[in-house]
Protein backbone atom coordinates (compact mmCIF):
# COMPACT_ATOMS: atom_id res chain seq x y z
CA UNK A 1 0.00 0.00 0.00
CA UNK A 2 1.26 3.50 -0.89
CA UNK A 3 0.61 4.86 2.62
CA UNK A 4 2.53 1.94 4.19
CA UNK A 5 5.43 2.63 1.88
CA UNK A 6 5.51 6.27 2.95
CA UNK A 7 5.17 5.33 6.60
CA UNK A 8 8.17 3.05 6.15
CA UNK A 9 10.22 5.96 4.77
CA UNK A 10 9.21 8.19 7.66
CA UNK A 11 10.20 5.48 10.14
CA UNK A 12 13.60 4.99 8.50
CA UNK A 13 14.21 8.75 8.52
CA UNK A 14 13.20 8.90 12.20
CA UNK A 15 15.58 6.03 13.00
CA UNK A 16 18.44 7.91 11.36
CA UNK A 17 17.57 10.96 13.47
CA UNK A 18 17.33 8.95 16.70
CA UNK A 19 20.53 6.94 16.40
CA UNK A 20 23.01 8.57 14.05
CA UNK A 21 25.98 10.65 15.15
CA UNK A 22 29.36 11.58 13.66
CA UNK A 23 31.51 10.29 16.49
CA UNK A 24 30.81 6.61 16.72
CA UNK A 25 31.13 3.42 14.71
CA UNK A 26 27.49 2.51 14.28
CA UNK A 27 26.57 1.63 10.69
CA UNK A 28 24.31 4.03 8.74
CA UNK A 29 20.67 2.95 8.92
CA UNK A 30 20.61 2.41 5.16
CA UNK A 31 23.35 -0.23 5.48
CA UNK A 32 21.26 -2.28 7.86
CA UNK A 33 18.04 -4.26 7.50
CA UNK A 34 16.26 -1.79 9.80
CA UNK A 35 13.57 -0.99 7.22
CA UNK A 36 12.59 -4.67 7.00
CA UNK A 37 12.57 -5.05 10.77
CA UNK A 38 10.41 -1.94 11.11
CA UNK A 39 7.97 -3.32 8.56
CA UNK A 40 7.80 -6.60 10.50
CA UNK A 41 7.20 -4.76 13.78
CA UNK A 42 4.49 -2.58 12.28
CA UNK A 43 2.75 -5.66 10.90
CA UNK A 44 2.75 -7.17 14.42
CA UNK A 45 1.10 -4.10 15.95
CA UNK A 46 -2.54 -4.52 16.94
CA UNK A 47 -4.71 -2.89 14.21
CA UNK A 48 -5.73 0.13 16.29
CA UNK A 49 -2.10 0.94 17.12
CA UNK A 50 -1.10 0.51 13.49
CA UNK A 51 -3.83 2.93 12.46
CA UNK A 52 -2.66 5.46 15.04
CA UNK A 53 0.92 5.11 13.90
CA UNK A 54 -0.12 5.74 10.30
CA UNK A 55 -2.00 8.86 11.40
CA UNK A 56 0.96 9.95 13.51
CA UNK A 57 3.49 9.62 10.70
CA UNK A 58 1.14 11.58 8.42
CA UNK A 59 0.90 14.30 11.07
CA UNK A 60 4.70 14.35 11.26
CA UNK A 61 4.91 14.86 7.50
CA UNK A 62 2.43 17.73 7.80
CA UNK A 63 4.20 19.42 10.71
CA UNK A 64 7.50 19.13 8.87
CA UNK A 65 6.01 20.62 5.71
CA UNK A 66 4.60 23.58 7.63
CA UNK A 67 7.77 24.19 9.59
CA UNK A 68 10.54 23.45 7.10
CA UNK A 69 8.70 23.38 3.77
CA UNK A 70 9.65 19.72 3.26
CA UNK A 71 8.15 16.45 4.24
CA UNK A 72 9.78 14.69 7.18
CA UNK A 73 11.41 11.87 5.22
CA UNK A 74 13.16 14.44 3.00
CA UNK A 75 14.56 16.55 5.85
CA UNK A 76 18.29 16.59 6.55
CA UNK A 77 18.93 14.39 9.59
CA UNK A 78 19.80 17.18 12.02
CA UNK A 79 16.55 19.00 11.23
CA UNK A 80 14.57 15.79 11.59
CA UNK A 81 16.24 15.27 14.95
CA UNK A 82 15.36 18.79 16.10
CA UNK A 83 11.75 18.24 15.13
CA UNK A 84 11.63 15.00 17.12
CA UNK A 85 13.19 16.75 20.12
CA UNK A 86 10.42 19.36 19.98
CA UNK A 87 7.77 16.65 19.89
CA UNK A 88 9.24 15.11 23.02
CA UNK A 89 8.59 18.32 24.94
CA UNK A 90 5.35 19.33 23.24
CA UNK A 91 2.53 20.49 25.50
CA UNK A 92 0.08 18.35 23.51
CA UNK A 93 -0.12 14.77 24.76
CA UNK A 94 -0.68 13.17 21.32
CA UNK A 95 2.58 14.67 20.06
CA UNK A 96 4.56 13.39 23.05
CA UNK A 97 2.89 10.02 22.50
CA UNK A 98 3.92 9.99 18.85
CA UNK A 99 7.50 10.73 19.87
CA UNK A 100 7.51 7.91 22.43
CA UNK A 101 6.11 5.34 20.01
CA UNK A 102 8.52 6.32 17.21
CA UNK A 103 11.50 6.28 19.54
CA UNK A 104 10.77 2.83 20.92
CA UNK A 105 10.01 1.26 17.53
CA UNK A 106 12.96 2.82 15.72
CA UNK A 107 15.61 2.21 18.36
CA UNK A 108 14.35 -1.34 18.92
CA UNK A 109 14.39 -2.12 15.20
CA UNK A 110 17.85 -0.68 14.59
CA UNK A 111 19.63 -2.37 17.51
CA UNK A 112 17.83 -5.69 17.00
CA UNK A 113 20.04 -6.23 13.96
CA UNK A 114 23.36 -7.99 14.20
CA UNK A 115 24.88 -5.38 11.87
CA UNK A 116 24.94 -3.03 14.89
CA UNK A 117 26.17 -5.49 17.50
CA UNK A 118 29.96 -5.32 16.95
CA UNK A 119 29.89 -1.54 17.52
CA UNK A 120 28.02 -2.17 20.78
CA UNK A 121 30.46 -4.84 21.96
CA UNK A 122 27.68 -7.41 22.00
CA UNK A 123 28.76 -10.82 20.79
CA UNK A 124 25.28 -12.15 19.96
CA UNK A 125 23.52 -15.40 20.83
CA UNK A 126 25.46 -18.35 22.21
CA UNK A 127 23.63 -20.83 20.05
CA UNK A 128 25.93 -21.98 17.31
CA UNK A 129 28.97 -20.43 19.08
CA UNK A 130 29.15 -21.82 22.60
CA UNK A 131 28.14 -25.34 23.50
CA UNK A 132 25.80 -25.82 26.44
CA UNK A 133 24.31 -29.22 27.21
CA UNK A 134 20.55 -28.76 27.42
CA UNK A 135 18.48 -30.55 30.06
CA UNK A 136 15.55 -32.61 28.84
CA UNK A 137 12.37 -30.62 28.25
CA UNK A 138 9.48 -31.47 30.58
CA UNK A 139 7.22 -34.19 29.22
CA UNK A 140 3.69 -32.77 29.08
CA UNK A 141 2.30 -35.43 26.80
CA UNK A 142 0.22 -35.10 23.67
CA UNK A 143 -1.44 -31.68 23.63
CA UNK A 144 -3.92 -32.08 20.82
Amino acid sequence: MESDHLMGRVLVAATEAFVSSDDNHLPPVADTATADRLAALVSQLPPDQRRLLRMGTRALQGISLLRYGRRFHRLPTDRARRLLQRLERAPLKPLRRLHRVLKMLCQYAYFAGEETWPACGYGGPWLGRIDVAADAAPDVGDLS
Binding site: A17, N24, H25, L26, T116, C120
Partner: peptide, 13 residues
Protein backbone atom coordinates in the same frame (compact mmCIF):
# COMPACT_ATOMS: atom_id res chain seq x y z
CA UNK B 1 18.57 11.73 20.49
CA UNK B 2 21.35 11.11 17.99
CA UNK B 3 24.67 11.46 19.74
CA UNK B 4 23.18 10.53 23.17
CA UNK B 5 21.76 7.28 21.88
CA UNK B 6 24.78 6.45 19.72
CA UNK B 7 27.25 7.10 22.54
CA UNK B 8 25.25 5.19 25.06
CA UNK B 9 24.74 2.13 22.88
CA UNK B 10 28.34 2.44 21.69
CA UNK B 11 29.31 1.83 25.32
CA UNK B 12 26.71 -0.86 25.90
CA UNK B 13 29.47 -3.14 27.24
Amino acid sequence: HGRDVAQLMGRYE
